[in-house]
Design a protein around this nucleic acid. Structure first.
Length: 593
RNA sequence: GGGGUCGUAGCUCAGCUGGUUAGAGCGCCGGCCUGUCACGCCGGAGGUCGCGAGUUCGAAUCUCGUCGGCCCCGCCA
């Protein structure tokens, strides 16, 4: 079909806005053909743009045959412009399922602005399409209302964040995209430096060092909507490039950062979702979060707390429990109310989850009128009453146990808790339970390397009262490190930073970094600290995760316009791709095959 | 690096323990239809069963390898 030119036509309205009150107006709409309903005579077309759908009508008696033929030839995703009169529909023909269902457009003139091949999938939210097809035809996928909603929500949130922070004296500063490679932490994406054969830039994992330098520079309150890149394996909630609302402030303590984020989140949720958040957010120490929920990012929309039963079961006849306790491990239990109806298969499935996190098994028993039955119930008969008392167990409950080191027990039983919570949070995407998790350990011991490593990063300030442990017992040093968690998602991570060279050097020493090495890699930062660095701290909420939570999505791919697959490829444009040998040569690079 | 799962028509999927012409719904094409909005009715086209080996008289089905999507462990300061 021959396409028409736009000519002097101007769009007067969008497809989602016409109402009964527009009756009689002459309007011009432009958009995609969503659907045609050809009745032989009268012909209906659902016209779609980003605002919605309007039904347009062609009456054969009102048009020359040529126009009707053209209208009949319209197909899905053709781009058309229609000019005509808005008519109020007779009462019995009002479509209450459509916001514009009160009216329809009685077409006087039609322009076909472009034709379309039959699209590989329907542009609607009902059709489920495989991820690879969606990504290959991302431009079609993005036409779907749900993705449109995500991108528009994202834009709105970004604007409100800028507004809120600017009003509070924050300055948006851009930091470089080509930075020095970072020796530790995540794997860098590397950029060859043509003018320096054999040398490379890295794409930033975060603007961490720059924002600290900006504090030394007197910016005082900084933010940036910053792209961060890490060459690590992906997950549903991890993309190789993501966007952070990067924030840093001078002269602040933890509480100041908390207050700022609470006001920021409140503003964003109010302005973008019309939801009032309760502040201040709940606060919890890392240790308590692990003890109670088995994770440092618990979903508080459901209860299900882990309970330590070491003292009760240490003397039981179940040898695994007794041995674990005597070796310094712990035994924890999860009481699942009314869980006795779970089948063996379901319990086996839960056990597999526990094993994934290092548990050797998942012991279980059901609480019946007669006592503990099934699973390891018979080994617990001697402590039946005290155990049930301790757990507050009731008839019909399922009891699940893990016995291992503290960390493995918490993590594995925590994973079981999350699984059990799935049905409990069904349909509760718009309920938001925020909490702060704080007092993370500064170091964790890497037994493979036989060395201490920073649990988060090495720029976090130890709790002031723990400074003396740096040299004596690094494992006891907790940091002024905090995460903001909502609904089981780690939304933001931050800390009060080290601003003194002496403390920074002591921390580097703990992780086995020599002065020479520190000087080489972070010399500029250590040097900057010597010229009057103010105390400072900050935080970086992940914008993608924030939008994911706000829109109730389960994958970051649904809130990023052009995401990568699980193998970090872009199916639409074919990235990554090979480059010409000449280009490689210019960069002094040879590919090993 | 490892584990799981999926790959059959444009899309979503069925196809039992191997058995001869590989199906359905939606979409697409053609015809009919003047008030539908998941329009309806009639007819039709459309498949290297991801790819490659192997087992077998015979493979969409079994085995191995490989490619790709998704989920997870490790990793992600």
């Amino acid at each position: 079909m021959e396409a028409d030119h736009l000519g002097d036509w101007t769009r007067s309205h969008h497809c989602g806005e016409l109402k009964g009150t527009n009756q009689g107006e002459t309007v011009t709409l432009m958009g995609w053909v969503q659907k045609t309903r050809d009745h032989g005579g009268v012909l209906f077309i659902d016209l779609r743009d980003y605002t919605g759908i309007t039904q347009v009508v062609f009456h054969p008696e009102k048009h020359p045959e040529a126009t009707m033929d053209r209208a009949k030839a319209l197909r899905g995703e053709f781009v058309i412009a229609v000019r005509g009169e808005v008519l109020r529909r007779p009462d019995e023909m009002i479509n209450s399922a459509l916001p514009t269902g009160e009216i329809e457009l009685d077409v006087k003139e039609l322009k076909v602005l472009n034709v379309s091949l039959t699209p590989p999938f329907m542009v609607d939210d009902e059709t489920e399409v495989a991820e690879d097809i969606r990504l290959k035809y991302r431009y079609i996928d993005l036409r779907r209302p749900s993705l449109q909603e995500s991108l528009r929500m994202r834009a709105k949130v970004t604007i409100e964040v800028r507004k809120h922070l600017a009003e509070r004296g924050f300055t948006e500063v851009e930091t470089p995209l080509m930075v020095a490679p970072t020796p530790e932490g995540a794997r860098d994406y590397i950029v060859p430096a043509r003018l320096h054969p054999g040398k490379f830039y890295a794409l930033p994992q975060s603007p961490q060092l720059y924002k600290q330098i900006l504090m030394v520079s007197g910016i005082d309150k900084y933010f940036q909507i910053a792209r961060c890149l890490r060459d690590e394996d992906l997950r549903a909630d991890r993309q190789p490039e993501h966007t952070q609302i990067d924030i840093e402030m001078s002269y602040v303590r933890e509480d100041d950062v908390f207050a700022l984020l609470e006001s920021l989140m409140s503003h964003v949720f109010k302005s973008c979702l019309d939801i009032e958040l309760e502040t201040p957010f709940l606060r919890m120490k890392y240790r308590d979060a692990m003890d109670t929920y088995g994770t440092d990012k618990p979903d508080l929309r459901f209860d299900l707390k882990l309970q330590d039963v070491s003292s009760v079961v240490g003397s039981s006849e179940f040898k695994v429990f007794a041995e674990t306790v005597s070796k310094g491990g712990v035994v924890k239990a999860l009481r699942v109310p009314e869980g006795a109806t779970k089948s063996r298969k379901e319990i086996t499935n839960l056990e597999e989850i526990a094993k994934r996190y290092g548990a050797k098994g998942l012991a279980w028993s059901k609480v019946t009128e007669a006592g503990l039955e099934g699973g390891i119930g018979k080994f617990l008969s001697s402590i039946d009453a005290p155990l049930r008392e301790h757990l507050g167990a009731e008839v019909g409950d399922l009891l699940l146990f893990v016995a291992d080191s503290w960390l493995t027990t918490c993590r594995s039983l925590g994973a079981v808790r999350s699984e059990l919570g799935e049905p409990l949070i069904e349909g509760r995407e718009k309920e938001f339970r925020f909490l702060w998790v704080r007092e993370f350990p500064l170091f964790e011991y890497n037994s493979d390397r036989g060395a201490w490593e920073p649990a988060h990063h090495m720029f976090s300030m130890p709790m002031e009262e723990h400074l003396d442990y740096l040299e004596t017992d690094p494992g006891k040093v907790h940091a002024q490190l905090y995460d903001l968690v909502v609904n089981g998602v780690e939304l933001a991570s931050g800390s009060v930073r080290i601003h003194r060279r002496d403390i920074q050097e002591r921390v580097m020493k703990v992780i086995g970094m020599s002065l020479e090495e520190a000087e080489r890699k972070f010399g500029f930062l250590l040097e900057a600290f010597q010229y009057g660095a103010p105390p400072h701290g900050g935080i970086a909420p992940g914008l993608d995760r924030l939008i994911m939570v706000m829109t109730g999505r389960r994958s970051l791919r649904d809130v990023i316009a052009f995401p990568k697959t699980a193998r970090a490829a872009s199916l639409m444009d074919g990235a990554p791709a090979e480059v010409d040998n000449q280009d490689l040569q210019d960069l002094s690079i040879k590919v090993l095959k």
